[in-house]
């Protein structure tokens, strides 16, 4: 198994609209806020750090930050954030971030958007815990690969 497969989440959706329209729904902050369930000020531009306040009932008022990485019109929109980091009073700045990437592709009658959230290397150990339960050999194999990765990238 490749490391990347163990450390990312990938989802996609087909939208019956042209790519330019879908791009706008993602990158126009006012539009984004509506479907994402947040309120925010500023603009999506590469390098921007946006503070977002959740508007979803039950969680309204909680704050998180999103660091914009890349904006390649109608191709790629990406940001970094901290997985699950909204506990008030905790400093998350030193914790690992995950990378969220949206990619856009024409498909008959509309656009396919794929979102990949990656960087769960640390967290993905948890996925392997399942293998640990089911198959000790598999777990050992994967952990050997992880160990190799960690040593080489140290």
């Amino acid at each position: 198994m490749k490391r990347s497969e163990m450390s990312k989440i990938e989802r996609s959706v087909f939208i019956q609209a042209p790519r330019a329209r879908v791009w706008r729904a993602l990158t126009d902050l006012a539009e984004f806020s509506k479907w994402f369930g947040v309120s925010a000020e500023g603009r999506f531009v590469p390098g921007a750090r946006l503070m977002m306040t959740v508007t979803i009932e039950g969680y309204a008022g909680m704050v998180f930050y999103l660091m914009v990485e890349k904006m390649e019109p109608m191709e790629l929109f990406s940001w970094r954030w901290h997985p699950g980091s909204v506990e008030p009073g905790i400093d998350y700045s030193k914790e690992p971030t995950t990378l969220v990437e949206f990619r856009f592709r024409d498909e008959a009658g509309g656009t396919r958007v794929t979102v990949v959230e990656s960087g769960f290397e640390a967290i993905s150990l948890a996925r392997r815990a399942k293998v640990f339960e089911e198959n000790t050999g598999g777990w050992e194999y994967q952990m050997a690969a992880l160990e190799k990765y960690v040593r080489e990238s140290a």
């Binding site: 939208i15 879908v22 509506k34 479907w35 958007v113 979102v115 959230e117 769960f120 948890a126 815990a129």
Partner: peptide, 24 residues
């Protein structure tokens, strides 16, 4: 923690469904 990863995955499903509904 793994269960949380699974939750995050289903949250993306929900978010993309809302994006789709919003655009369409």
């Amino acid at each position: 923690v793994r269960r949380q990863l699974d939750r995050i995955a289903s949250q993306w499903d929900d978010a993309l469904a809302r994006l789709k509904a919003s655009v369409e």
